[in-house]
Design a binder for these strands. Structure first.
Lengths: 128, 128
DNA sequence: CTTGACTCCGTACATCGGTACGGAGATTAC
DNA sequence: GTAATCTCCGTACCGATGTACGGAGTCAAG
């Protein structure tokens, strides 16, 4: 059951280089190099990378994920704190984007009621 | 009325380096260097940078802004198209972030009804 | 005239999350 | 046994938007 790096990558549908990158970042351990042959990767590594990928989907950065991994079996309160911080960042970003959405919609509305194609309300709004 | 680069930067509350960066990117022209002394920047440059900054607030990238600038006095339809594309990107991003928001909120709710601090539902949810 | 502030220019560095490359050695398939 | 594939390792690069640095020239105030 020797799982070389390419097996890991295939299993997780990621790039070999990404696995190495996570090793360099200290997110996963690099297994020892045997006297003969290639390194082989335990289940734990695969599970850890799955953890990383799921946490990424929740919007955590690799640095925050390193943090989460080190908190494993640590106070739930600390994990909560990180999640709450992330939630507030997400909510703020949503608010920003909604403002942007409104501004763009308003400008487009102006364009739609404009019948002079050689002159654009959006461009006007950007002028000094 | 000589406006050197630092005057431009101060007037717009940006960095000198940023002005130079926009020159390198071709977003603004670099004024000719006089035989004696420093370059001086016309009103037009200041206005152009204001345009750039406003367009950035609407979420356009520098590349898109270069596009907008070149469209100045061009068909409104082309500007609209860019704005519509940008609007749809913004809306998609909002939808993504809302999904994320829900997921984080759900996890935090689980944490709040958890009374064992040494064990965290969020961490559990990330495990294989 | 000297000192300090400003400009000019090219280049390198920063972030974030990877991706690409290249050469040497190891392994596997036929 | 030989060819094709894989691994290992270090390093460089991507895109986006700047920021920082260093040395030489220039200007302005006292």
């Amino acid at each position: 059951m020797t799982r070389t790096i390419s097996k890991v990558a295939k299993e997780l549908a990621i790039n070999i280089e990404t696995v190495r990158f996570y090793e360099r970042r200290g997110l996963i351990d690099q297994p020892p190099k045997p006297e003969l042959g290639y390194r082989h990767y335990p289940d734990e590594t695969v599970n850890r990378i799955r953890f990383i990928k799921r946490a990424q989907e929740l919007g955590f950065t690799l640095e925050e994920i390193a943090n989460l991994l080190s908190l494993n079996d640590r106070p739930c309160a600390q994990v909560q704190e990180l999640a709450e911080y992330k939630l507030s960042a997400v909510m703020e970003k949503i608010a920003d984007l909604k403002r942007l959405e409104s501004a763009l919609k308003a400008l487009l509305t102006q364009c739609h009621s404009n019948n002079d194609d050689s002159h654009c309300p959006i461009i006007d709004s950007l002028q000094p």
